[in-house]
């Protein structure tokens, strides 16, 4: 056990990464923050639409899109990657809808069938391609991701200045576009999520917004894929949004809380991974989950505390909430 959990050396765990390995640490943490932010923002809308597990499905099946795109074009650069991911994501949604609407199989089974099949095909293709020659995608990396490799990428140069590792820049662009998108289309996303019937009656194309969100989801997940892997990307989608939902009943506040969650869990997770010498992405998710547990505990305690007279507003709330209907 001693070997498993190294002694906590404050200097090694907390100080050294920033004094000695700053160039290394900054990119990993930045990547973690960006992944957590982008995934978390999309995840908020997934949760509101009760589609958390569709996010799970898409992040798995993207592997198939990546490997097929690689086998066709024989290289993996950003446009190819995005195209593959987009195709795989939309294919997953389409398969789920087909099975759900055209057969008697219910939607939960349909989700499970769609993504496990596509993922299995993806893993098999990766294994076959590996035996034929070097592949950019590695089956294990699919699961854990290799966020620690991010700082080792040859940086993108702008003139003579090294801007940063390409995957971080790509993630930054995707995150930026996502934030701008949410700011611009806040009201459309809100109404199609809250009351699709009303939205449709006002002439909004709910289908377009649905597929738009799925597109955003695919792009975010594929950009996060190499650093955190498929399953941890699911965690990044769901956990920050749940954390925010636990703390605030107000959507804009939730979106901001999501970003805060991303920053804190990325930082804590990075140091945890240095301490325990384990996967950084995994540690970030563990910290994120602990943050949720903390929020859960806080709200549970607050609910258990008897409503004091100093809060007439909330006592009114409770009696109103218990009315029939």
């Amino acid at each position: 056990m001693n070997q498993l959990i190294p002694a906590f050396d404050f200097h090694r765990v907390v100080i050294a990464p920033w004094t000695e390995g700053f160039a290394f640490s900054i990119w990993i943490v930045l990547m973690g923050v960006l992944v957590g932010t982008a995934c978390g923002l999309v995840g908020n809308y997934l949760l509101l639409r009760r589609m958390a597990l569709v996010g799970d499905a898409i992040s798995h099946s993207i592997l198939l899109g990546l490997i097929v795109a690689f086998l066709i074009f024989r290289h993996v650069d950003t446009p190819v990657m995005f195209a593959g991911a987009l195709a795989a994501g939309l294919l997953t949604v389409a398969i789920i809808e087909f099975i759900h609407k055209q057969t008697r199989v219910k939607v939960d089974s349909a989700i499970c069938i769609a993504f496990t099949s596509l993922f299995a095909l993806g893993v098999t293709l990766v294994s076959l391609a590996e035996s034929a020659g070097p592949v950019h995608i590695d089956a294990d990396c699919v699961l854990y991701g290799e966020i620690a490799l991010v700082p080792l990428e040859p940086p993108i140069l702008w003139g003579q200045v090294a801007l940063g590792p390409p995957s971080v820049l790509r993630m930054a662009v995707v995150t930026g576009v996502l934030i701008v998108g949410i700011l611009c289309f806040y009201k459309e996303l809100l109404i199609t999520s809250f009351d699709p019937a009303l939205a449709k009656s006002m002439g909004l194309k709910t289908g377009v917004w649905h597929y738009g969100l799925m597109t955003a989801l695919s792009l975010v997940v594929v950009s996060a894929f190499e650093s955190v892997g498929a399953i941890l990307a699911v965690a990044m989608l769901i956990v920050p949004a749940m954390f925010a939902a636990q703390l605030s009943p107000c959507l804009p506040v939730r979106l901001v809380l999501t970003i805060g969650h991303a920053v804190i869990s990325a930082l804590l997770g990075y140091h945890l991974s240095i301490w325990l010498k384990c996967s950084a992405a995994g540690a970030m998710v563990v910290c994120g989950s602990l943050l949720f547990a903390l929020a859960w505990a806080v709200t549970a305690l607050r609910a258990r505390r008897p409503v004091s007279t100093s809060e007439p507003e909330s006592s009114g709330l409770q009696s109103a909430a218990t009315l029939p209907g």
Binding site: L53, L143, A235, A245, C278, V285, V286
Partner: peptide
């Protein structure tokens, strides 16, 4: 929290602990 979120949370957070 809705059921899908609860399932997704358990799936992902346990898996992350496992990965670590």
């Amino acid at each position: 929290q809705k059921e899908d979120a609860a399932l997704g949370f358990v799936l992902a957070s346990f898996f992350a602990v496992g990965v670590c």
